[in-house]
Write a protein that binds this DNA or RNA. Structure first.
Lengths: 258, 258
DNA sequence: AACAAAACATGACACAGCTCAATTACTTGT
DNA sequence: ACAAGTAATTGAGCTGTGTCATGTTTTGTT
């Protein structure tokens, strides 16, 4: 199999490196594919060596040639303002697709950087495109990913333009909780992979405000925080503050068809 | 040709109702198609009777079965918060696609409503999907539309989380100006199809703030406003306030491949 | 273990933009 | 052409959140 471009080193583990046996396959791109199709997809996917914390998966402006799925760890995507400030546009957890918004560009429109040690599956876009020509289900799944991201973005706009600091933080925590749950982790106790600074950046708040809201929530017995460890004590009230109904809270995962 | 569903009345004008002769085809879905493919696309498109100002093209929750391209007039898309407030997520001008974010849903995730008398091309999604199975260029164009929308949304997040009132309004005007220009209208003089209230809603500002910024810009000789008529007097300064470089300002159009 | 650097928390204060209120200018229907 | 409702403007005052300053805790390095 001639690879177009040897970008990063490829591991060659046997078990971990097949979609077929990956515990995330029911959340990820293979979601709606049959076994045979998964096998085809598998063949074009490269598993790269883990990214260390702070390393870039790609940078805004890098030539676009691959999309990625997170296997473990987490990423932040961000764009740069003209005066050099960064604006985080998304955090990505395992099973989520990264880089799709560059699809019709020659270069990535955002940068993506590891928040911790992170492994990804690398999918050369040209191959994915060829394959999706043959597999309608794969195509459908890609459309799903894209339109899901758009819907999430609209919710983010709502958050940024209408919600106050407490509502923003509550929404953020509820969303993370739902995403962890989908992946089989506890929705009540988890570790934040990002700093307060990054949370503030993402939510359009100053770090200090995030910090204060955390302490306020802690005082009101809604959450218990210890550094990056978060325990949700009163989920009901958290959702209420977030302005989310029970069912909205369930759809916190990215890249999941309806 | 058996139509799946007779939704709204279909006109049967001869000239206006062909992509082939439509002045927008170079900006719209047919963008990268050859004549034969355009003809095929043409056959599945229905032209509906104009929407009157305030009428809905679709509502959040309506069953998803069509995507649309604006022919003339304009639309606002919005979602509802749980306490019944509306959050405008987009304005749509001629040649722009509407409804794509519902692609993997059974129902539209947003509402879309005419800001003025508006005509649209209605494209039954199931037919579009069939056709896109056969036409790679069409498929590519749809992916382009989606990823472009995601990129625009990220810019909007940046605006909402980092920019102040003046920067927001300037960005908004610069963006509209660029979109009008692409469509062959003057980038300097145009009519706002939306109210101050709607601008404020979209930009995350109170109406009063929008009004004040407009007067301030007028006083500084950057624009001349008369009701909904806007004339851009000092484009350079407008872009500067918006925090946009010249080339960024050019990409204000939605749904345009790079 | 000791240090440096970064991340986090908390208080005091300022100010951009919101709210409320009042006035003026448009739209729309009859 | 008029009235009545709606949209836009302008002012005054308030407030949520940013900024700045300071101290504390955590993390990473040698």
């Amino acid at each position: 199999m001639p690879s177009r471009q040897q970008k990063g080193n490829c591991l060659n583990l046997t078990k971990e490196t097949r979609c077929m046996t990956c515990s995330l396959s029911s959340l990820c791109l293979p979601l709606s594919l049959n076994l045979e199709d998964i096998d085809q997809l598998d063949r074009i996917i490269k598993r790269r060596q883990p990214l260390k914390k702070g390393e870039h998966l790609f940078r805004q402006g890098d030539s676009f040639d691959c999309v990625y799925a997170v296997r473990s760890g987490s990423l932040k995507n961000y764009i740069m303002t003209n005066d050099g400030e960064e604006q985080i546009t998304n955090f990505h957890l395992p099973s989520e697709m990264v880089g799709l918004d560059g699809i019709d560009c020659s270069s990535y429109p955002v940068s993506s950087r590891a928040l911790e040690t992170t492994t990804v599956c690398e999918i050369p876009y040209s191959r994915l495109q060829e394959l999706s020509n043959e597999l309608p289900d794969l195509r459908k799944q890609m459309f799903s990913s894209l339109s899901k991201e758009i819907r999430d973005d609209k919710q983010m706009m709502l958050l940024l333009s209408k919600k106050n600091a407490e509502e923003r933080v509550a929404t953020f925590l509820a969303n993370l909780s739902a995403r962890f749950k989908r992946r089989g982790y506890s929705p009540y106790t988890f570790r934040l992979p990002m700093s307060r600074n990054e949370i503030g950046n993402y939510l359009g708040l100053a770090v200090e405000t995030v910090s204060r809201v955390f302490t306020r929530f802690q005082t009101s017995q809604i959450i218990a925080v210890n550094g990056k460890e978060v325990h949700i004590t009163d989920r009901q009230q958290l959702l209420e503050i977030a302005g989310l109904s029970e069912c909205e809270a369930e759809t916190g995962a990215k890249l999941v068809a309806s």
